[in-house]
Design a binder for these strands. Sequence first.
DNA 1: CGATCAAGTCTATGTTCTAGACCTTCGCTA
DNA 2: TAGCGAAGGTCTAGAACATAGACTTGATCG
Lengths: 127, 127
Amino acid sequence: MNQDNLIPIPFVFEQPCPIRDVLDRIGDQWSLLILQVLEHGTMRFSAINRAIGDISKQMLSKTLRRLEEDGFIRRTLYPEVPPRVEYELTDLGRSFLVPMKGLVAWADDHHRAICEARADYAARAAS
Amino acid sequence: MNQDNLIPIPFVFEQPCPIRDVLDRIGDQWSLLILQVLEHGTMRFSAINRAIGDISKQMLSKTLRRLEEDGFIRRTLYPEVPPRVEYELTDLGRSFLVPMKGLVAWADDHHRAICEARADYAARAAS
DNA sequence: CGATCAAGTCTATGTTCTAGACCTTCGCTA
DNA sequence: TAGCGAAGGTCTAGAACATAGACTTGATCG
């Protein structure tokens, strides 16, 4: 019935799995980008919006809320008119930047190789 | 018209941006998970499927194709019946594991803190 | 009086993901 | 000899999610 005893699988995620839990939250289109932007200091909603450029306000709002929920960022509302809201990294968020910078550096270093791989793939697909 | 000269923004992504290019591809629900699974060696389609557990075949197929396109993994088809297809990391893919392991280690180390942050947030939301 | 600001939310529309049926070709079983 | 199951997918229908853009709120400016 189950193949697992016939064909051994080298690796299976236990469920629930802490890595998956974190990666599922952080591994989306926008979270890493937002954290990267906030590295440069406290920022207001619209400033983050403009820094990223092509994120919708709804998605930004939702992602910020999730990052706040997970303790990566702190949200401070100043009840002025018009309202002012500032976002900044928490200690947890700042500590996350360390492994993330490794990822970003890798991306920077290997971007050319990836582009070449894409060109190769396209060339092979065409033939 | 444009606020950028009135309110300085500490950070703006240039477009096109290599970091965004890589992060947009790798930063999805499944790519990191698949690469992590493949760290343990060459695997067949259905083995990856079972290792991850809750990915749909379509998504797995699509994500594998994208990873292959970007040069992270190599796909080898053995024209037997039934067909056998094996996936393995390329050198590029393996080099990516280095920064990724940092991320995974961080996730492991800080999972508890994140869970606490979530509980705090829920408690504050309830009150 | 009307426009404008910031930080969102709401809505309509469009894109993407999921679950599950289906395809192929062969060997095995009944 | 008819039918089943295997592997690695693809196809389809429906659900979930993302986007663009209008709308809100209340003080301030012209």
